[in-house]
Design a binder for these strands. Structure first.
Length: 350
DNA sequence: CGGTTTTGACCCGCGC
DNA sequence: GCGCGGGTCAAAACCG
């Protein structure tokens, strides 16, 4: 595999592709990202996308190429100033805005190593149509990432982690309260804040802080019959704790099967075979979790199939039954979008 | 019974 | 110093 000159010229980006072995393994084996799991056939759309992705990755693209392809993929994308709009048009959540990311100029994702970058590419390439028209995103506080998502009515997904709500506050000038979540893993200091946009009611703003120091639950969990589309029964309202008016309004937003407004990024009808390819994979783990494992021990993951033991075993760090790590969706799992939540600074992969 | 959610209290930083 | 707003704590309630 050749690393193109342009990529090398990109400075830090070039280092992503130094380890060609890993890249080859990622691509030549049934790497989870590229091997649609489950019995459901790959929708043609995703298959084509995947092939494009693979093609791109087999020959490490330059930043310019990536950007060009992304832009070509969705020329109509609109992005706000200083942010990247990711529009998972395949699904119902049309807006995914990432801000405060370490994007800058031609140095696309400069804080990512090769494998992280590849995983990111695979993730968003398949799930979303990314437009990078807007450049020069400021790296503000790399320890925090803010994601805006459009509320998706018919689907909920989690980001592969189990969150415990530890607080909720009313925010000044906002009718909606802000909820505070911590990762339930005691080793993990990741947090997130979830609030609804005061301007756009259907927009959920999620701020991730810190990174997960553990694996998420399996990337491709076994799908129950019918694709696991049996939504959990909605919780009964608590008889106590009347809650504030704003709080009530906010809490009412999640639909049955969801616990948090942050589950917006659940890509469609949770469990519908539609969009199976990544719908079931993406939320299972954030890049930050996938990559360290891949880097450390790529073989098992690469050779594993969707429902195979490999994936599950690979996540032994976070067993399915463990409550300290998100392993399975449950009615108590706080959902959140699949997006960046690691900290390029605190995660020492640079 | 263990884990999660709720929610008031508390703490802290910031601006005045 | 004081008030305000935001973030966290922790006890109680809730839920499976």
């Amino acid at each position: 595999m050749e690393c193109r000159t342009a990529a090398h010229e990109a400075g830090a980006i070039a280092t992503w592709f130094d380890d060609e072995l890993i890249v080859r393994q990622l691509l030549d084996n049934d790497f989870a990202f590229y091997s649609p799991p489950g019995p459901n056939p790959i929708p043609a759309e995703e298959l084509a996308t995947t092939q494009i992705m693979q093609s791109t990755l087999r020959s490490p693209p330059t930043v310019q190429e990536i950007q060009a392809q992304w832009m070509n993929q969705q020329p109509e994308s609109v992005s706000d100033s200083g942010s990247v709009l990711v529009s998972p048009s395949r699904f119902e959540s049309p807006i995914l805005k990432i801000s405060n990311c370490a994007f800058s100029g031609d140095a696309l994702f400069p804080f990512l190593k090769k494998t992280e970058f590849l995983c990111f590419l695979a993730f968003f390439w398949v799930n979303c149509r990314v437009s990078l028209r807007e450049r020069g995103i400021n790296r503000i506080d790399s320890n925090k990432y803010t994601v805006k998502l459009k509320w998706c009515e018919n689907g909920m997904a989690d980001d592969g982690y189990k969150w415990r709500k530890y607080g909720q506050k009313s925010i000044k000038n906002s009718p909606y309260p802000r909820s505070y979540y911590k990762c339930t893993n005691p080793r993990c200091s990741a947090k997130k804040q979830v609030e609804r946009s005061r301007d756009e009611e259907d927009i959920i703003i999620i701020t991730y802080e810190g990174l997960h120091l553990h694996f998420a639950y399996p990337f491709f969990p076994a799908i129950p019959d019918g694709g696991g589309d049996n939504p959990p029964t909605p919780k009964r309202p608590r008889t106590t704790s009347p809650g504030t008016e704003s709080g009530e309004r906010f809490r009412e937003e999640p639909r049955p099967g969801t616990e948090s407004a942050s589950s917006v990024l659940t890509y469609g009808n949770g469990g519908d075979s539609d969009g199976l390819f990544f719908m079931n994979a993406a939320p299972q783990g954030l890049l930050e979790d996938l990559v360290p494992f891949v880097v450390r021990n790529p073989a098992p993951l690469l050779s594993s199939s969707y429902a195979g033991d490999g994936v599950s075993n690979n996540n032994s760090l976070c067993s399915n039954s463990s409550s300290s790590c998100s392993s399975h969706r449950s009615s108590s799992v706080t959902s959140s979008p699949s997006c960046f939540s690691w900290s390029p600074e605190s995660l020492s992969f640079l």
